[in-house]
Design a protein around this nucleic acid. Structure first.
Lengths: 326, 326
DNA sequence: CGGTCGCTCGCAAACGATTGCGGTACTTGT
DNA sequence: ACAAGTACCGCAATCGTTTGCGAGCGACCG
């Protein structure tokens, strides 16, 4: 099987202690034996067993990442960013997909924290109290969410949504439908608040809620029919995925975007720029969310956590072809 | 911090050994103490430290998943499937993204195998010999690839590609361009072989190779210009992602799909069905690839590995709107 | 030449769980 | 009442690595 420190020790004619020291604290061992050990180690292809190291040192050099849906390109991109920067810092990443299910989330947090040094929770759905209880003691960073006392990375949801509404208002839209997602979504709620606030300042726009759907392509498909049933001239979707589903379904039902109704998504997933009409959407810096979350988490682990606990990245409306003036 | 077996033992008034036995081998301990232990354990919320268990038992209840690109929805879907079925079987999943880089792949395999019980390698790019050497001793299943001696799950690449070529041929296309991906891709090579073989049987079709590109949206974008420069009436792309890039670029350059050129992708990513024109593509059962890979791997770990080492899933051409008769 | 210091390195105890082995106490049979 | 058997539980070793502590040894100083 895999060579152990014992094998290296035997080959180099030293004790296991010396092997360990030669590799981790080179200044504590003489130059000659050090190179004997290093030679023996590389000859055998020795690498210390992470499990044993983990037990002894109390850290596993592993980070946990929890997402609501790995197949959602938004989270897939975050996952990639998390892995990349974690990898560079010498950490492995174990992922978990909650499938938007709160109970699953709770259970997964428990198993994750047991085998990792720290957690990145992307868009967690659990209520504050439960979440805080669940992560008690594990260094944690959340994204797309703010939880009191927990370092968080969010996009400027309310502002981005406000921009979207202003955009539609400027185009002359006054009756706007909302195809929304899970009520437990923090960023969703923030965006909703941003929308309502902005609508309030205008005073002349009517927001009608089409209901809540699964924040997926299929969910948007469902929502599409509700859109045609409504009298709205524009739709704001919870998600790019939902927006895409709506787009498709509207096409099938013979209503044209943007000629008949304008459509705005959120996230700026790759696909949003590909489809025709290209989707007007709120851009969220997914990679930066992921990579900076890891940076923050590692800072926490090193005890060099920053004073400012919650940082918000700008969210920016990007106008493409799915919105048009009335 | 987290409660240990010692804490449970103290609370239940027994020894650590008994705690362990009461939870893992209930028949070896009397009913009364068993329930005392269980009560104490659940009161403290005790769960055995996976690291310590891993060291003692020699297994970590963790699987490793290696993919070329997490952000590619094809692999994102596989990742989700892998996580789901692994999770059900009580395994955690640590992921690694090679970014299509062979050296990175080699290094990541090494770190993965050290902390996992087994590996799922999705579309590994390393040459057979290197790969075999790298995974020597670790239970491994590969997908989208066949490696001698290693259980593998593949789609019927050659056949799927053949179907695609026949489809184009039936539509009257005789000059077909190939926008291909990494030469190290096994399934890519298999599809290429299937194409050439089928072209051979027709005898009257010309296959021109546009070159190799990064198998991503951006890569396809690049390839798009080569397409317009060629005289081909149809293009086969390595990838749906590439096909989407080509589609977009062609649109920008003023050549219409499918009126001016027909376009076929591969994988049947969600987006393929969403764009207009909807992409004709070769469907690959991504979830089944992922979930069955895990099934096979777990069977290996349990020592119940099947006799038949390599199973090939059907690949099916799905005809949509990006191909048309000349 | 003896004592002290510094440099290397080995011994052994952790880390937290699992498990073979053996001891204790209780039951059962005669 | 005593022997044999059984059921239950604790002791201690173990997994592979790290690290405090101290031993050995040579050098240097007085």
């Amino acid at each position: 099987m895999m060579p152990g420190a014992r094998d290296v020790a035997r080959l180099a004619g030293v004790s296991v202690s010396t092997v360990s020291r030669a590799l981790r604290l080179p200044e504590l061992v003489s130059a000659s034996t050090r190179e004997r050990v290093v030679a023996a180690a590389s000859e055998l292809g020795y690498q210390p067993d992470p499990t044993a190291q983990g037990l002894r040192l109390g850290r596993t050099q592993t980070l946990g990442l929890l997402v609501p849906d790995l197949a959602n390109p938004f989270f897939a991109t975050i996952t990639k960013a998390v892995h990349t920067t974690a990898q560079q810092a010498g950490y492995a990443v174990v992922v978990a997909d909650t499938d938007e299910d709160e109970q699953a989330e709770l259970a997964l947090v428990a198993t994750l924290r047991a085998r990792t040094d720290g957690l990145v929770l992307a868009s967690p759905r659990l209520p504050d109290a439960v979440l805080l209880e669940a992560i008690e003691g594990s260094p944690t960073v959340v994204t797309n969410r703010q939880v009191p006392g927990v370092p968080s990375l969010t996009a400027d949801d309310a502002n981005g949504a406000g921009q979207a509404l202003s955009h539609l208002h400027a185009l002359g839209h006054r009756h706007i439908a909302l195809a929304w997602g899970p009520a437990s979504s923090y960023s969703g709620a923030r965006r909703l608040a941003g929308l309502r606030a902005r609508a309030e300042t205008y005073g002349d726009v009517e927001l009608t809620d089409l209901g809540t759907f699964t924040p997926s392509y299929a969910g948007g498909f469902q929502a599409g029919d509700h859109v045609v049933a409504s009298a709205a001239t524009a739709v704001l979707a919870f998600n790019d995925l939902m927006a895409l589903g709506i787009l498709k379904r509207l096409g099938e039902r013979g209503v044209r975007v943007p000629d008949d109704v304008s459509l705005i998504g959120c996230d700026d997933v790759v696909t949003a720029a590909i489809v025709t009409p290209a989707l007007t959407t709120i851009h969220i810096p997914q990679d930066r969310l992921g990579s900076r979350a890891v940076d923050r988490l590692i800072a926490l682990l090193r005890g060099t956590g920053t004073a400012e606990p919650t940082t918000v990245l700008p969210g920016q409306l990007v106008i493409r072809a799915s919105t048009r003036a009335l």
